[in-house]
Design a protein around this nucleic acid. Sequence first.
DNA 1: AATGAATGAGCTTTCATTCAT
DNA 2: TATGAATGAAAGCTCATTCAT
Lengths: 217, 217, 217, 217
Amino acid sequence: MAASKDKLRRALPKEVRKQQLIDATSRSIAKNGLSGTTMATITREAELSMGIANLHFKSKDMLLSATLAHITDEYNSGQSGLLSSTEYSSLADKLKALLDFNFSAKVTQKNKLAVWFAFWGEAKFRPTYKRICSTSDAMAEKAIGDLFQQIIDEGRYKEADAELLAIGYTALLDGLWLDLLVTPRTVNREKARKVACHYLASAFPKHIKVDVTSHDK
Amino acid sequence: MAASKDKLRRALPKEVRKQQLIDATSRSIAKNGLSGTTMATITREAELSMGIANLHFKSKDMLLSATLAHITDEYNSGQSGLLSSTEYSSLADKLKALLDFNFSAKVTQKNKLAVWFAFWGEAKFRPTYKRICSTSDAMAEKAIGDLFQQIIDEGRYKEADAELLAIGYTALLDGLWLDLLVTPRTVNREKARKVACHYLASAFPKHIKVDVTSHDK
Amino acid sequence: MAASKDKLRRALPKEVRKQQLIDATSRSIAKNGLSGTTMATITREAELSMGIANLHFKSKDMLLSATLAHITDEYNSGQSGLLSSTEYSSLADKLKALLDFNFSAKVTQKNKLAVWFAFWGEAKFRPTYKRICSTSDAMAEKAIGDLFQQIIDEGRYKEADAELLAIGYTALLDGLWLDLLVTPRTVNREKARKVACHYLASAFPKHIKVDVTSHDK
Amino acid sequence: MAASKDKLRRALPKEVRKQQLIDATSRSIAKNGLSGTTMATITREAELSMGIANLHFKSKDMLLSATLAHITDEYNSGQSGLLSSTEYSSLADKLKALLDFNFSAKVTQKNKLAVWFAFWGEAKFRPTYKRICSTSDAMAEKAIGDLFQQIIDEGRYKEADAELLAIGYTALLDGLWLDLLVTPRTVNREKARKVACHYLASAFPKHIKVDVTSHDK
DNA sequence: AATGAATGAGCTTTCATTCAT
DNA sequence: TATGAATGAAAGCTCATTCAT
């Protein structure tokens, strides 16, 4: 506690400083938007000096990319850990876990959604952002598609197309997250989850029911 | 081509010039992104001089707002015209028309989607943009919800919730449009339409089939 | 009356248009200051189109110079007419007439004082303005000095120095006019006149008394 | 000379830099006038980079206001220090000291007079400038009026009006300073002082004589 | 002669980046 | 390592001037 107000800022391990800056960047984007985020707002948010960002990251662009990559990695590693896990006793359980994860408090944090969508708007025009977004997206869609295929096989859902369903599910997630971010009064986490649950339930009625409740904290 | 190099300074009606500038703004956003769009890129795109934008719009912000409002109005007037039309012989036809409209070439133009999503990222932090986006959004969702309710009543779909379905459908549209913009190779217009069609078909099986084909040019 | 609202602006004699523009310039400077006066404020004040000023005057600078010259000429011709007049029955009368003139409503009009002092601040840096101001100043001081010399001769005021008195009187006028313009609540026309009258009375006690009243309307 | 080309970027205490900028602003106004003074002329005069002015002052207007306030404060603190001093053995001495101060080399520096009159022209239209000017003016006139009243009481000058004399003296100062700035060939410091001395001498003959010499360096 | 839309140089301001400390 | 004053390119905006009508 006392140490946190220490004015003699001591050198910290590189990785710690970098993470501080990445977190400060997320907060600044959530507060001020991407276009309102400057090196000044970031370092002020981190309570560090202006020069430090360029010391640890070569440029503003690098810092922003690192921030995007961090958010993205966190999401992907969570989701792929879940999808590749062998702990679930059934595919149905895994499907429910996926749904819970996608609308968990952690994933739907305002800070993270804000960062995510801020970069979407710019991704097309910045190769670095684009690569991060595309890679992440492809991975997620592939992993979900694989799960859906297993479920289709298991449930013998005739005429179900895993790829189309995966595209639809991820698109629905994007759309619902956008709603959570932009119109939080109309669409809250519960309602959004319900909508996504309906989607899965109508595709895989043998595996998931519309009234399945969340196990999220 | 020859005409485009016409250096003659010709005075045009105010409304024509304003529209030229709005169009140039859309193109610039589609080419350079919102953060890469400057008064210079806009006026260069319009092949006009720098000062003209501030002559017809008081500030860059006003021009951007006008551009957003234009895209938004165009979409909304198209959709609400369709939804309030009495020319359709059945609700099923109207539903198909809605689907066709949402994935028509006009609505899914790259320029328009780019503008749309560029502003979404910033809307939270700019009251003017926010108002335009929120209004448009609420209108669209309400109108779609009304149609869905009529369909539910007509089809006696038990347990169907018009509001949730409307939220889901609009979220799915947003997500699919985002895919069309960002990953056009993976998701094209046909595929996106198919995904949305599946969504409607599983909600309203008596009114729309998954294999219904588009009548779009 | 009806004609004044005539939208078909008919061509007017050059001199009339020029004068309209000069008057509009004075009003604009009085309203907006010199730095706040643009071709737009001037032509709006004149209820004419933007282009007309450059049609009748080669440049903004020329129009401003003409405005300064007009105010200056008006003052100088009034004063020199008075000083060279042979209608006064005595030097004392002429001295009183000078005082009355210097604090007449016409000379102390806010518009005119505002123009006058606006240019003083800039005169040093614009040769054209400087020439107009210097010429006018020298003329006024010379003419006043001549009158003072006659009065000194007539009154046998020993040790009185016409040049110093003229410098003092003109400086006092400038200072009092500045007060009228800037602090009109503290110093009004009556009070300013009284102060100047005191100055003259203490220099030429045989010719003018401190309680001499104004004959101004 | 060699030092002036020193391109070394040396961080200096904030107050030092601010003062450098204020001084550079005065010099630029004296050289180029207020309308000819841009951020570029100021920073060039200070031999610093363009951005620095907005780093230490939030805007050009703030820098200009600070410059006006500085000149004004310097004058007022000098004058009020003098008027409230108890070191003078007589009121006559204090009166002479006031006169010397008003025409001292320091007060009549071209730079300072130029700044002073540049702002007078604009003060009416800029609330910030107006407040600074009005406050300064009122203070000066009040302090001088108080001194004059004491002198009147001591000298038993019948019919002398301290307020009118103070208005007259300050107006005369303004007018003479304007002459010093604009027509330095006709009116120099000695002559201007003499004129003001005459004014005081004719008002307070028992306290000051017309031939009293200056003790200024 | 008169109009006002159009031009573009020049202004103030912002901000990523640098670097002496 | 860490600091933050300093830099200067680039942005938005203003406005005197031009010119097709």
